[in-house]
Every structure is written in structure tokens, then in C-alpha cells.
Design a protein around this nucleic acid. Structure first.
Lengths: 66, 66
DNA sequence: TGATATTGTAAAGCTAGCTTTACAATATGT
DNA sequence: ACATATTGTAAAGCTAGCTTTACAATATCA
């Protein structure tokens, strides 16, 4: 699964730490999701969507391997 | 987090087992999500959305406690 | 240059997601 | 009534998500 967190974050000029605090998770969680080490829970995905004001599908997209 | 899986399933007249096979998970996973025991991964949420042809936000919604 | 911010990783520890197997309770259909 | 389908749970086992702490590499900026 791919995600656009890094880009969305850049558009808002936020650091991983900023986003982590706004969403309520650790910075490592943000980093791990951005670098593809973790697939977030649906709760987290919905929070990102809410925060960036974009549909979940716009931030996260399935790949063949999923 | 609430979800509308049971309703969507009923609208399509599908059993938990049917949905499980279509999505590619075990029946217990479907049951556990429907009864609120598990929060699915974002990959699973996207698959449900794809299958029911509805946005993730339409199937899963955050609650205060999330 | 020197100090600070940002990002990438790693490890340990705990919890949660998912699987398989299994059984009971209820609903459906002949 | 009987057989079958559906749903709810449970337990064991494994993997993945998330936390905290910590350190190194790179970028930013006075």
C-alpha cells in the first residue's frame, strides 16, 4: 500500500513530529508509515484523512501485492 | 470506531463467509470487525471500500473515544 | 562554524490483528 | 421435525502496529 503522507506534510510544511503531535501518535509511527514499514490501523487512516481534509482513498492506495 | 459492514452485507445478501471469501480473510475476521472486537488494517478497509464501491469514510466512522 | 531541527533506524516490550480449529446457539428451508 | 446455514465466541499461535528510548546522519540557519 502506498501513501501520500510525506507529500501532504510537505504541502502543509509540517515535520514528522508536528504531524505526530497533531494526530496523537509517536513520531516513529509517522516515520514508519511514511517509509512503508507499517500499515496503519483504519482509525489512524481516518484521522489522517480528517486532518488533511481528504478522503482516505486519496491518501492511501492499494497495490497489487496487497 | 463504528462500521456498516453488517448492513452493506445485508444489502448485498451476503453471509459473513461469503464476504470473507470475496475479500480474502477468515470468517472470524469479518465477525470480529462487525462485532467491534477488531479495528481492521487500512489495507482491509480499502478492500471493503473497493468491494462495496463506497468511500472508506462511508463504511467506517470515528467515534469520540478514538 | 556551531547549534538546532529533521529524518532514518534500531531494539525491547506490550497490545492488537489475523489465522485455524472448534463448539454452541439461532435462523432458514424442505 | 430435521438438516443445513449462519452467527457468535473462544483459545492458541504468530505477526504486525505502536510506544519509549536512543543514536547517527543530514539539513537548516544564525
Amino acid at each position: 500500500m502506498k501513501n501520500r503522507l510525506k507529500v501532504e506534510r510537505a504541502e502543509q510544511n509540517l515535520s514528522q513530529n508536528d504531524l505526530a503531535e497533531r494526530i496523537g501518535v509517536s513520531r516513529q509511527t509517522i516515520n514508519s508509515i511514511e517509509t512503508g514499514r507499517y500499515v496503519p490501523s483504519t482509525i489512524l487512516a481516518l484521522k489522517f484523512a480528517q486532518f488533511f481534509n481528504k478522503p482516505v482513498e486519496n491518501l492511501f492506495t492499494l497495490e497489487e501485492t496487497d
